[in-house]
Nucleic acid binder design. Structure first.
Lengths: 229, 229
DNA sequence: TCAAAAGTGTTAGTGATACACCCATGC
DNA sequence: GCATGGGTGTATCACTAACACTTTTGA
């Protein structure tokens, strides 16, 4: 007996909602389940927590194993533990949200994932377990996050135009924003550095590219600064 | 064998940070542990999740059993699963925040709680496990909550003065607010109904008492209203 | 020369902040 | 009559929201 508890217990899993951004659309990474239950269905990547494993370490490990992705930003959403959410028996899952720059990663399914692909976050396929509810919760989390933290900088490539960032924010919020007001706020924050480079290959005037001033953001945070778009 | 999984697994517990408000101070309900580990230490009420039990049901059950309290408002904070947080073996706990009107409840310790008492939330005793970190997280949650949701109405008696509410908000935020501005915002929200009754037994002009217009708040919420103080 | 997006300022309104005095009451 | 908090309004400032045209470029 490897446990010191005598109690019967629910199982513990982690699931990750991995968001990326591509072609003007927020995307979510899903795997096709290669094992029962829900074999052949799409699901969030995730799996069982090891006996002596931190929750976030477990989430990273499952992500790596099932999809080949190593996210920079991974944060906990919350736990889901409704009775009956897993047909195999009572299972509590701790859901995480991860953000990745899509260009930095090519996904490759492995272990118990038959396939791994990006889907539109706002129009996903049917999902296994209660993963639709978890995704829904993660999208609500993103709406909050995109306004109060510079998450756009984790989703976009290192260099991006102001319009790129605006389109991303709009696609998360599901509403359009005024270009001039958006840029005014952006410049007021003082977190954008022009790189001196420009878009290429566009059939119109090329936009200035910027990068995120992470050092300045870190120092502003220490002074109690609150990001808000 | 009562499990259908072959995996070794962490244990799952729930812990509740129960906040009340009394004598101008935010308070937290703690129990004195009657069992090892940490016997005799103060801790958050909580315990093991039953094999087929919803997380919030488990939290309510543990609260009832250990302290006699049945909170109206109970919401999940997040899961804590750092390796080594429980000396008995890897244990994941899902923490909840509950708000109660102190006058409605008298606490009484039971089951594995030797004692149950209210402590100042901002100056608690040393706590078992990682409960100090959980409490810290719950306090941060309250700071956010008190600004964006009418939580004051869950902590105060049914009738209260504007000053009561302001003092509560101030004690959660840890900063003082301007009386006139506070009242202006409060009235702008339109959620306070004067009851026509007044404070009694105070050696000065008695303050008008109000109650929270819960029906109006519910209907405002449906229209996409966002509470903010 | 056309299409498509880049870039750029002003105004009006709304909400936030700062601030001080008189009033009612109980002792 | 005095001490205590109850109750009230105004002026300023900052931020938000609404709004349209010219410029650059590639095809």
């Amino acid at each position: 007996m490897s446990y010191s508890y005598e109690y019967p217990r629910p199982s513990v899993t982690v699931d990750a909602v991995v968001f990326g951004y591509d072609a003007g659309e927020l995307r979510v990474l899903l795997i096709e389940r290669g094992e029962e239950p829900f074999r052949g269905a799409w699901a969030l990547p995730g799996g069982f927590v090891g006996l002596d494993e931190d929750l976030d370490a477990a989430a990273r490990r499952e992500l790596r194993e099932e999809t080949g992705i190593e996210p920079v930003l991974l944060e906990q959403l919350r736990a889901f533990g409704t009775r009956g959410r897993d047909p195999r028996g009572h299972t509590v899952t701790v859901a995480f949200v991860a953000l990745v720059k899509l260009g930095d990663h090519s996904v490759q399914a492995a272990t118990d994932a038959a396939d791994a692909r990006w889907f539109p976050a706002n129009d996903p396929p049917a999902l296994a377990f209660d993963h639709a509810a978890i995704l829904q919760c993660a999208r609500a989390h993103m709406i909050e996050a995109v306004r109060t933290r510079p998450v756009g900088f984790d989703l976009l490539p290192a260099q991006f135009s102001q319009t790129d960032l605006q389109k991303l924010v709009e696609s998360v919020l599901g509403e359009e924003l005024d270009k001039r007001n958006f840029r005014k706020k952006l410049h007021a924050l003082g977190l954008l550095l022009p790189t001196g480079e420009y878009e290429t290959g566009v059939p119109r005037r090329a936009a200035q590219l910027y990068r995120f001033d992470a050092a300045r953001y870190a120092s502003l945070l220490k002074e109690g600064f609150q990001f808000r778009l």
